[in-house]
Nucleic acid binder design. Structure first.
Lengths: 221, 221
DNA sequence: AATCTATTCAATAAATTACTTGAATAGATT
DNA sequence: AATCTATTCAAGTAATTTATTGAATAGATT
């Protein structure tokens, strides 16, 4: 094989990976699967896509080796094929957040409309946790908490928060976290908590970011 | 703005980044620009593309904020907009190398045909360098060496190597490096050196990988 | 001012991609 | 064995992407 054909082959293969990530819907799927494995139907539901369309996108991700499957009972569970995928996604996400002004603008506007004016980063949080005056609240759906969560966090999915708010200590700062910077669960939770006079702040990043940093987590399987 | 529209906007913006990387030719351009800035014509030449086509690909990369330009004299120089881009590319490249068997197969076949049966990684090299019995040889084009190279490496572009081989000490191991794992300059150099009874090995990674690791480099502007 | 040069733009054709709809399949469950 | 269910496949359409060619532009250089 000569040089040009060699390079063409190698770069074409690599483009299968980036090609798999080149679509907004598939990025959203990757972001979602970073929380843990999910069935096709669940993914379709979360991303507001038809099941057939979701399935096709998943095939593309699988062809690019970004996801793999596990058959269980009547379902097929899709999951990221390695932490490297979450890492690539995070790097791209952070690059976009720092370089594409439009992304920051949209995020800022969206949060302002919910009166969410501040957030705390993981690095800032670690300092605050020393004092012991914060509670880490996981507001993702329960199955995601069960699949893996920040060590010593407690789980109240955002849609149950109103009913279960009494479980939270009123004298501590509540740090609500969810899937990541573009997930709105924590925004909604913080807005609700504030309405009820809690001192609440959202964590800027999500569980996958915490895990990628090698910080303490509790995982199930 | 409601939740779905918000997510659609954010992920669409982010897909501009991965979309820019989703094409084999553009990946090759990124790999090339990781060596340093280059004019459109140079990029076209190196990637065997027409200038017009190269220009269009560069527009896509620019729209995704992956590259930026500098006008100088009659030329426009393109460069990566940040080290983050090289980092994303490296992560994707490593993921592909570890996950896509076809890539490894093609690389292995190509090198075998040149009798290149071994290579040394950066981590392995660092151990070897302790003894002082190795020479680091940069076989990329001179302008890339000038733009930035591994500290204490010497420059002999591969196409001059036959003429200038006397500059190399015959009693030391020559570690030849180039642009990265898919670059063939180091393979060609090692093959040539071995023919002339040098003890030569290629570095698996390239200059950008060395630089990303924070290892000592000498940069020009 | 005229010319030259590097780069971009515009128009086109061919190929690929995304989504929809409805049917097919393969594995459980009854 | 028949049925049910989750997922994939297939066909079709509209939209997007890629590469080619040749013209346009903007900035140097003469």
């Amino acid at each position: 094989m000569e040089k040009r054909a060699y390079k063409d082959t190698v770069f074409a293969e690599l483009a299968r990976i980036s090609g798999a990530l080149s679509n907004p819907r598939r990025l959203e799927i990757v972001d979602l699967l970073a929380q843990g494995e999910k069935t096709v139907e669940k993914i379709a539901l979360e991303t507001c896509m038809s099941v057939a369309n979701t399935s096709q996108h998943l095939q593309v991700l699988k062809a690019g080796s970004l996801v793999e499957i596990k058959k269980q009972g009547n379902h097929i569970y899709y999951r990221l094929s390695s932490d490297k995928v979450a890492e690539i996604w995070k790097l791209m996400r952070d690059f976009g957040t720092s370089r594409i002004a439009e992304i920051n603008r949209v995020v800022k506007d969206f949060r302002e409309q919910k009166q969410i004016l501040e957030s705390v980063t993981i690095d800032e949080l670690i300092d605050k946790m020393e004092g012991g005056h914060v509670v880490l609240l996981d507001v993702r759906p329960e199955e995601e908490y069960l699949s893996g969560h920040i060590a010593r966090s407690i789980s109240i999915p955002v849609e149950q928060l109103l009913d279960r708010m009494a479980e939270l200590p009123p004298d501590k700062t509540i740090i609500a976290y969810c899937r990541g910077p573009f997930c709105v669960f924590a925004d909604d939770a913080v807005a609700l908590l504030k309405e009820h006079n809690y001192n609440a702040v959202r964590l800027e990043e999500g569980f996958p970011d915490w895990k990628l940093k090698g910080l303490p987590v509790e995982m199930n399987a």
